[in-house]
Computed example of a mutant assay.
Amino acid sequence: MSTDPFQLPFRLDRSRNAATQVFDHLRELITTLALKPLASLQRNDLSAYYGLSSTPVRDALTKLSEEGLVDIYPQQATVVRAIDVQSAMQAQFLRLALEVEIADQLAQQVTPQLIGTLGNLISQQQLALSLGDFDTFVKVDMAFHRQMFASANVEQLWHWVRQQSGNLDRLRRLHVPIEGKAARVVADHRGIVAAIEVGDSAQAMANVRSHLTGTLTQIEAIREKHPGYLI
């Protein structure tokens, strides 16, 4: 994204915690790569942009630092961190452990409603791919996996995983536009749903495992295509 994201207006919801809103907005900009690694975040500029005192901005930046998305230099600037591959690998390990078990459970408790919902999301992803709309593609991808968690009645775990996945999300953002990756994601999703639909737990689990390990097998290719983005 070449446009300065801070040129776009931000509307603060006065009924919600201000620091949380700043955190959510900055995290979205970072994980979607609207704010790229090494981008500088000046606290005074952010306070002016959000129309807030320095306290909620400081609190939001501190939380981003704890998640490993920014580095804070006292009395200086805050800088968006390069993508931490080790952090991404740990988040992927956590997600894989959970989703493999979820696939097993869904295959044992399959319903037509679940298959229809997941199938509709795959169709939305295919449409986004045909339009070259990778922002929408990634959003629908998230919705597909969140639906799996929700259908297994463990949606709270989805939110927990999301909190650990900032670096993984950025890594996947770099990977998805690489030729062939998005088409494989769609094919993988179809394979997962097909195995769940016929109640084949072993195949559903194997398909999830294969699907979720794709990005981490391409680290060097991503590093070569985006020098300076990964640590």
Rank of each mutant, 00 (worst) to 15 (best):
98 L>T: 11
8 L>K: 14
204 A>E: 01
220 E>Q: 14
197 E>C: 12
47 S>K: 11
206 A>Q: 13
105 Q>I: 04
116 G>Y: 11
215 T>G: 03
17 N>W: 12
16 R>K: 15
194 A>C: 08
121 L>F: 06
186 V>C: 10
85 V>E: 09
35 L>D: 01
106 L>K: 01
120 N>P: 03
188 D>E: 14
102 I>M: 04
57 V>I: 14
115 I>Y: 02
134 F>Y: 14
8 L>N: 11
126 Q>K: 10
65 S>E: 09
117 T>D: 06
88 A>K: 00
107 A>P: 04
205 M>T: 08
16 R>C: 11
161 V>R: 01
56 P>W: 05
206 A>D: 07
2 S>F: 09
72 I>C: 04
185 V>E: 06
37 P>K: 08
8 L>C: 07
159 H>K: 14
217 T>A: 15
26 L>H: 01
165 S>I: 03
26 L>D: 00
220 E>P: 00
44 N>Y: 12
224 E>R: 14
8 L>F: 13
142 M>D: 12
129 L>S: 05
226 H>I: 05
24 D>K: 05
59 D>S: 14
217 T>M: 13
165 S>Q: 06
181 K>G: 01
32 T>Y: 05
77 A>R: 04
198 V>K: 15
97 A>E: 12
137 F>Y: 09
185 V>P: 00
177 P>E: 10
226 H>Y: 15
228 G>L: 13
83 I>T: 05
11 R>F: 09
200 D>I: 08
124 Q>W: 02
23 F>C: 06
98 L>Y: 10
124 Q>D: 11
107 A>Q: 03
227 P>L: 10
226 H>L: 13
196 I>W: 02
1 M>C: 09
111 T>P: 06
112 P>W: 09
21 Q>M: 10
140 V>S: 00
8 L>W: 05
58 R>E: 11
16 R>Q: 15
144 F>M: 06
210 S>E: 13
170 R>I: 03
40 S>T: 14
171 L>T: 03
179 E>V: 04
56 P>C: 10
196 I>C: 07
67 E>W: 00
7 Q>S: 15
167 N>F: 00
206 A>W: 00
117 T>C: 08
109 Q>E: 13
30 I>R: 02
111 T>K: 08
86 Q>S: 11
66 E>L: 11
